[in-house]
């Protein structure tokens, strides 16, 4: 199910402004890849190019190649909607659909494209996804209650359940714990550990301990200077990044001597 992603020479623009420059990397299948770096360095922007969400902002565009399953997802013939069905995403703030129940929220992606689901199939998907997101035991008795009634951490896990219900190849997470308390954060981190046996996971985080805890490989993004585009400084195994990075800037950032 999971697949690797090959990124070559990617430049990302907002209108005329070049936000990220020259990114090359290979994201391994069935592993967790973390992106770290200071605010505004383009790590979230880059993450959003991996499922073509960047271009929903007017004027935004991407140059370069991102290959998923042997296919360049930026080839003219590729439908961004199809890409997003292969590459799920979890956002910084939990965003369950406010008018839908827990049950309907999980199935939201499966119901797209006017797909009809039998009740038994739907039940199976909901149970499998909620179990996959470690939420089943907490909500199994109130599946028809609104998703907004859950706590912040539960809502975020509901969003993860919704993302994995469509069985994507890749799961992108944009600072998924930044609005959560430490207990909910730890629940999500445990979940990431479990999910990586099935999915290719890419996570953006501001929290370096989190990157060290959850990821197998880490990419450090930085700005050359204010107003200059962000770029990938170093991409290495997490262990190496946090013990003996190749690049001085990486070491300065990771050890807290930023600049």
């Amino acid at each position: 199910m999971a697949t690797s992603i090959d990124v070559s020479d990617v430049n990302i623009y907002y209108g005329d402004f070049k936000a990220v420059e020259g990114v090359n990397m290979t994201i391994k299948a069935r592993s967790v890849t973390a992106f770290i770096g200071p605010s505004g360095c383009g790590k979230s922007t880059f993450l959003r190019t991996l499922n073509r969400m960047h271009e929903v902002i007017p004027g935004a565009r991407v140059e370069g190649k991102i290959v998923l399953q042997g296919q360049d997802m930026y080839a003219p013939s590729v439908d961004p909607v199809a890409v997003r069905r292969q590459v799920g995403m979890v956002f910084q703030r939990a965003n369950p659909f406010p008018t839908m129940s827990i049950y309907e929220n999980v199935l939201a992606g499966n119901r797209l494209n006017n797909k009809r689901l039998k009740k038994s199939e739907a039940d199976t998907i909901v149970e499998r996804s909620l179990k996959g997101a470690n939420l089943w035991n907490e909500v199994k008795d109130r599946l028809n209650k609104p998703g907004m009634g859950l706590s912040g951490g539960q809502q975020q896990r509901l969003c993860i359940a919704r993302a994995i219900a469509v069985q994507p190849q890749v799961l992108l997470m944009d600072e998924p714990c930044s609005a959560l308390d430490p207990i909910s954060t730890s629940a999500i981190e445990d979940l990431i550990h479990e999910l990586k046996s099935t999915y290719t996971i890419v996570i953006v985080t501001h929290n370096m301990q989190q990157a060290a805890r959850v990821s197998d490989e880490t990419g450090f993004f930085n700005l050359k200077a204010t107003g200059e585009p962000g770029h990938l400084v170093e991409f290495n195994s997490t262990e190496k990044m946090f013990t003996n990075p190749d690049n001085e800037a990486t070491e300065a950032y990771i050890s807290g001597r930023f600049g």
């Binding site: 969400m53 890409v83 992606g109």
Partner: peptide
């Protein structure tokens, strides 16, 4: 809210969806 629209888009919703 942008958040809700992005939730739908990221699931692979078309514009109408």
């Amino acid at each position: 809210p942008r958040l809700h629209e992005e939730a739908a888009l990221a699931l692979g919703a078309t514009r109408w969806e």
